[in-house]
Every structure is written in C-alpha cells, then in structure tokens.
C-alpha cells in the first residue's frame, strides 16, 4: 500500500518535472502551443468531470460556459477596457454567477431532461454569440484580445511564459479538485451520483450540493475559456458549439469519467493521437465515435478506471493468496 503510494508520488513528481523543463529542452514552438491548448482543455474537462463524473449530471452546455468565459474576458478587456487581471477575476465571478442562475433552474430537472435542457442552454449561448454581432463580432469572431498582463516582474508576452502560466492554473485546478474529491464534500457529490434518493434520506441537501457542483463546473469552464481567449487572442463562435462539448466529453470518457486522472490522461492521449493522425482531421470522430461507444459498453470508466479496477483485482488476489499462506502456516504450526 505505502509502496504503491510512494510509486505514485514518484511518478507524479517525475511527470511534473518533465512538463516543467520541457520548454527548456525543446524549441518546437508548435509542440508548446499544442501543450498549452491541452492544458487549457484539461482544466475545462476537470470541470465537466466534477459534475458529470462525480455528481452524475451530464451537462451538455459545457462549451457554452467555456465560451462564456472566453467572450467575457474579451469584452471586459477590449470593449470595456479593464486591466487584464481585474477582467480575469471578474470573468470568473461572472461565469460562476451565470452558472449559479442556470444551475438553479437546470438542476430541478433530472437525467435526460437535464441533458436536453443543458443542450438547449448551450445552443442558446451559441446562437447569442453568433447573432449578437455588435458585442461578440458574430461569425467574424473577436480579435485583439490582450495577453495576460504582467504581475510585478512576471510578464506573459512570450509563449513560454504563457506555458508556465497555464501550467500553473492546471496544477492549481488538479490540486483543488483532488482536495474536493477526497473530502466530505466530494463524498457528498458521490452520494448524490450513486442515489439521489438515498442521499436525501441520509440528510444531504441535494439541491444545495448539486448547485455547488454545477457552479464549480462552470467556474472551471470559465477559467479555461478565459485562458484560451488570452492565449489564442482570437475567438470565434465555434468554441461554444456543441461539437466542442462533445470533444470535452470524448476526452473525459476515454480518460475515465469519475476518476481523478481521467481528464489529464484522456485529453493528452486524444490530443496526441489527433496530432499523429493529422490526415484524419475532420474525420477524427470516425475513430473516436466508435471508441466512445465501445468504451461506454465495455469499460465505462475509461482508461483510468480500467487501470484502477485492474489494480484492485490484483490486490484482492494478493490478499487471497496471503490469507491462504497464513492458513497453511497455521496448519504447519499445528502439525509441527
């Protein structure tokens, strides 16, 4: 047990070290760019995971909230002219508030009603962004979004500094999510996922806790969106499209829904495969669509869940063998 934990720590530190020094050992700007985008998407997927994976509510408006974060930042910095970090914080507050308002209503519905409701909310956000040209730039998109402003001596004009900034937020996200999941709050979410009725009868306010999960998920979507806007500096309505939500879902499902490492694993693997399969481009869903279906039937908790289950089984077997050995020993003692 402790050895496993140690191994895990070791592997994690190694991984972190690797991503930390990566920009220093490679000068491949394209690769760094892809990595930054991957980090951003991972943050968004963590938000989705908290709601869909840990609380059991499949939201199909996630890209909408991602876009909400991106456009809010764009509007606050460019149109309103606020300083970057003030706009950044306001963006997070704003997406959370919108999330709270929508969540309050959406969460009165359940299961497929919730999925359809959020699907429609996502679509409304898309249509608004698409049609409200004066504010969002419509189809042409929104250009000239500033890079993150400097904090004291830290400036974020170069790609590498952006890399570290986004990485910082990713690590922060993971730490926060880890702490939430491994706390009474996380157990509360999971109790709701497992059975809302049972959760209620053991005194859990499902209304309140579902709302917390929903707001958290929009918060992380908004955070990712804001980072995306200031990194790419140009955004278009397609980031709020349902296909974007589906992309997030694919990352989450393949990595492992309801697992802590799922979002990282899924996003990295899929983005990486997509890069390798460049020739597939628009047809990548030809591959990922069926994978999604097969996974949900045979390994519903994705790669990460598969590994966890496999480990559990191995452990159980080991225990069995050990207890058998114990019995044999006891017998020997008796016989001897």
């Amino acid at each position: 047990m402790s050895r496993l934990l140690l191994n895990k720590r070791f592997a994690l530190s190694g991984l972190l070290l690797l991503v930390l020094v990566l920009p220093l050992i490679t000068s491949n700007a394209y690769m760094i760019r892809i990595l930054i985008l991957t980090f951003i998407w991972t943050i968004a997927v963590y938000g989705l995971n908290l709601l869909a994976g840990y609380t059991g509510y499949l939201s199909l408006a996630h890209a909408g909230f991602f876009a909400l974060g991106a456009y809010t930042l764009a509007i606050l910095t460019v149109t309103v002219g606020l300083s970057y970090w003030l706009a950044f914080i306001l963006t997070l507050v704003f997406t959370s508030i919108v999330g709270a308002l929508i969540g309050m209503i959406a969460l009165r519905t359940r299961e497929h009603f919730f999925a359809i409701y959020t699907l429609c909310v996502g679509y409304i956000i898309y249509l608004i962004i698409y049609n409200w040209e004066g504010m969002t730039g419509g189809v042409r998109g929104f250009i000239g979004i500033p890079s993150p402003g400097s904090i004291g001596p830290l400036e974020f004009n170069s790609q590498i500094s952006n890399y570290y900034l986004v990485l910082f937020f990713l690590v922060l996200t993971i730490v926060v999510i880890y702490r939430i999941v491994h706390s009474l709050q996380g157990r509360t979410f999971m109790a709701i996922r497992n059975s809302e009725d049972l959760a209620k009868t053991i005194g859990i306010s499902t209304t309140k806790n579902k709302l917390i999960a929903f707001i958290l998920s929009t918060f992380f979507a908004g955070l990712a969106g804001a980072l995306f806007a200031s990194f790419t500096r140009f955004i278009g309505p397609e980031i709020s499209n349902i296909t974007m939500t589906f992309d997030f879902l694919v990352y989450l499902l393949i990595g492992g829904i309801g697992t802590l490492s799922g979002p990282v694993i899924g996003t990295f693997i899929i983005v990486w495969i997509s890069q390798e399969l460049q020739f597939l481009q628009d047809y990548r869903m030809l591959v990922f669509g069926p994978i999604l279906v097969i996974l949900i039937i045979f390994a519903p908790r994705g790669i990460s869940g598969f590994i966890i289950d496999w480990n559990l089984k191995r452990k159980a077997k080991k225990q069995q063998i050990e207890s058998m050995k114990d019995m044999e020993n006891n017998q020997e003692v008796k016989e001897g």
Binding site: A115, V250, D282, V293
Partner: peptide, 17 residues
C-alpha cells in the same frame, strides 16, 4: 442512465464524420 446518452452521442459523432 448517463451511459446511453453518451453512446448515442458517440454514434452521432461517427455518422457525421
């Protein structure tokens, strides 16, 4: 209940691609 929705989305993505 979350599974059949995801499977349906998977098929949707496939057929569109």
């Amino acid at each position: 209940p979350i599974h059949d929705k995801i499977a349906a989305i998977g098929m949707l993505l496939f057929l569109e691609a």
